[in-house]
């Protein structure tokens, strides 16, 4: 039981690094993709946070991005192995188009996460650990404290730019 909790925490760190890297490589913090995402970014800046990090949080809310790809790819690997993960990537692609998002961050994140999760299942992790780990990782960004999270994301974006 303790070992499973430790595996879930390790999986959450892996998922956090994976989807934040993909999101920042696809320039999510640069601007709000739709007007609602930009409005969330402005609201977070008005409350004392960082505008660029707020834009990225708004983009995560408004369209399935790499974090959604990681979650659904983990579910796909948990249910059906690698074909399930690729089916999840196709579903994320359809979801992106439904939400008027022209980018490929979600699909890329899902395909990458499929192979990462499948590789980690070969070395002792279970795919369900990654499902719970992704939920914990998104909780640390969107659910605990918005203002410090937006500052961390803005600092990562400036470090890349």
């Amino acid at each position: 039981m303790l070992g499973e909790v430790i595996r879930i925490l390790a999986a959450s760190i892996i998922c956090w690094v994976l989807f934040v890297t993909v999101d920042i490589l696809f320039k999510l913090p640069e601007k709000g993709g739709v007007s609602g995402a930009a409005a969330i970014g402005r609201q977070i800046r008005a409350d004392g946070g960082d505008l660029l990090g707020g834009n990225m949080m708004g983009n995560i809310v408004s369209s399935p991005d790499a974090s959604a790809g990681t979650l659904l790819a983990s579910c796909g690997v948990f249910i059906a192995g690698i074909p399930g993960g690729l089916a999840a990537a196709a579903l994320v692609f359809i979801g992106n188009r439904i939400c008027h998002d022209p980018g490929y961050a979600g699909t890329t994140g899902a395909v990458l996460a499929t192979f990462v999760v499948y590789g980690m299942t070969q070395v002792g992790f279970a795919a369900s650990d990654f499902i719970a780990g992704t939920v914990i990782a998104i909780l640390t960004i969107q659910g605990l404290f918005h203002i410090p999270a937006s500052r961390v994301l803005g600092r990562l974006w400036r470090w890349r730019a």
Binding site: S35, G36, A37, V61, S63, P64, A68, A87, L91, I98
Partner: peptide, 30 residues
């Protein structure tokens, strides 16, 4: 753990995202 559950999870997630998107856009003024 059933293949249709993956479709259900994806459908719920995309639907909920679309709802948040619509609410935020309408709140911001269309």
């Amino acid at each position: 753990p059933h293949p249709l559950a993956l479709a259900a999870a994806a459908a719920y997630f995309v639907g909920s995202t679309l709802e948040s998107n619509a609410i935020a856009s309408a709140y911001a003024g269309g």
